[in-house]
Nucleic acid binder design. Structure first.
Lengths: 343, 343
DNA sequence: TTGTACGCGTTATCAT
DNA sequence: ATGATAACGCGTACAA
């Protein structure tokens, strides 16, 4: 391995000067600079990132924490895919690397392990859920001054660095869209209440119904767990109340698709017999039949913004404030919410 | 930060002894060991991973290289999601971490950059394609003795460490299944020839047709690029030859679904008017209408095996041989390949 | 503008 | 069974 020392010798300067050239520090004679660069090139010298981390006492890594999920479904969601891409883009702009950390169930309570070993300077935490244990773990992180940012999850009452989307407004748009299409009897299939955006979506739904002077029937408020299967099963309940249902807003695309599958088995076709809007605007929305109207959530940008914010804190010492950033959502209309018998 | 020195002082031993305790090295008196562990616990000491990496001259990181894809689609494929999960599982078993590296277009030629900075000890390379530049880059890696493993891609004529699935057999199963269902006129929609498994699939298709004594019509050999859109567009061509088509085998699920969408617009329904089998057995296969028969590829296990192999090389110095591992595929039958008019 | 010298927290080798 | 000590490659304060 070629080290700084060899470059220094070849360029006839001190090792410190070599470092200064590579870090762009201090005033220096262009000629010296050139000599050093030439020597480095000739020797194919590249600074040792580990030694740099050691000396700087910074790893240059951003930890990305993924929640535990049973084996095969860990990364399968479009959700994580997009966020990871956004983080990756930002991280490279800042000269950082991403260290992936897949939590196991029993480790979910101890985030500090990641920092203790000094392998990451900060973390972006994905897919956390609102439980007492989680709150405690995160408060512990905060108390120790370890920088982190949550994506797509808020903890009411606590002040963390969070990047979220405006799910209230997104749901409002979705339900308003259904109303604009002429539907009055609109059901809502929500996901698990452990996610803050489930609450947000309920809020948006209620507001839209209220603003339109429509009644919210308790039997039209369903709850799944964001899986296709839970949407499929919700079709049972919805079918029982089919006289009171013209349209459905589902809290994600997978449940919306499961729901369409379940109702199709009973002869009810989305976009013909009823309307559906999903949430996430994932790939699946384009693949489904009929193509699914959905709320686009800027996951990519959310990941990018989270990485930007938390690294800014590390690099420029802006650790004090904990901004809460909320990015806008956007309705994407496809065939599932256009009723032909309506036109 | 608590260092080894403080632990040594508290336990009244030398720093070397503390290290030995934490690394489980050499014979030592249980009493000493206990004293050290107690002191470490009392001080909440944890070894500094960066200092360890520095001293050991190993980073403890496995690089995971992802190919360049335009912004939003980088991780979107089920494909990468599964492989990453498998790598993650194996890596943690070995006490390693995963360092994600998202290639940009202009960097695809220089993998050595990753190793030069010493931030990774080995790499798993995903989604590489067979081009002269790629071959050259990989050979360069190999020449420099840098350990790496390719997943789901082979380079004929070169001897790399590769983990692949048996796509020939998988395709054979798919086509045989269609034949068993009574279909004789079977088209094949392949993906980009830059992937070795495209060739494998063609081979499996040809063999199954040949074994069954069926003719392979050139106009029934189509090529897309693995996107839904390319499958959708292939429907045009297929429609022109609809008299000669009863069934289609597509080289991945997304194309298969696009194809079904395109033919549906012409009134041709999969599972009723024709049969389809896809490939990957992705989430989309369950979400599509009708649910898509597909070839299950053990991506998770492939990722795990790749990580296992390449880390074994690093840790136990088995760098000399370059095994080529091939994992089995499995046919999953759903509605898209069961023709009702056939029964 | 450049050089000197120390420190970073381990591992690993050699004594004892 | 344990201690002393030399690396490891770089950043950086201070000196010149």
């Amino acid at each position: 391995m070629v080290t700084r020392k060899e470059v220094a010798e070849l360029a006839r300067v001190s090792e410190a000067t070599v470092s200064r050239v590579f870090n762009g520090l201090g005033p220096m004679k262009p000629a010296t600079r050139e000599r050093v660069l030439a020597a480095a090139k000739q020797l194919d010298y590249h600074p040792n990132a580990i030694a740099q981390s050691f000396a700087r006492r910074r790893s240059g890594n951003l930890g990305v924490v993924l929640p535990y999920m049973p084996k095969v479904h860990l990364f399968s969601a479009y959700y994580f895919a997009e966020i990871l891409s956004g983080i990756g883009e930002q991280v490279r702009e800042q000269g950082y690397d991403m260290l992936l950390s897949l939590l196991k169930p029993d480790e979910s309570l101890d985030y500090t392990r990641l920092y203790r070993s000094q392998k990451v300077d900060a973390c972006v935490i994905l897919g956390s859920i609102d439980t007492p244990q989680q709150r405690q773990s995160l408060e512990q992180l905060q108390d120790q001054g370890l920088p982190f940012c949550l994506v797509n999850q808020r903890f009411e009452g606590l002040s963390f660095h969070e990047v979220d989307a405006d799910h209230v407004e997104g749901s409002y748009q979705a339900v308003r869209h259904l109303q604009d299409e002429g539907y009055r009897k609109i059901a809502f299939l929500n996901g698990s209440p452990h996610y803050s955006n489930s609450g947000d979506r309920l809020q948006g739904y209620m507001k839209a119904m209220c603003d339109a002077g429509l009644e919210v029937l308790p039997e039209l408020l369903l709850e799944g767990n964001y899986s296709r299967k839970s949407g499929y099963e919700a079709a049972d309940q919805l079918w029982e109340h089919r006289e009171q249902v013209e349209a459905i807003f589902a809290a994600n695309d997978r449940m919306a698709i499961g729901l369409m599958q379940g109702l199709r088995e009973r002869g009810w076709i989305a976009g013909r017999d009823f309307a559906v809007v999903g949430c996430d605007d994932s790939d699946a929305a384009k693949l489904s039949d009929p193509p699914l109207s959905s709320i686009n959530v800027p996951f990519y940008e959310m990941g990018k913004e989270a990485a930007r914010g938390v690294l800014a804190g590390v690099l420029h010492g802006e650790g004090a404030n904990n901004p809460r950033i909320k990015l806008p959502t956007r309705l994407v209309v496809r065939q599932s919410s256009k009723s032909s018998h309506n036109k």
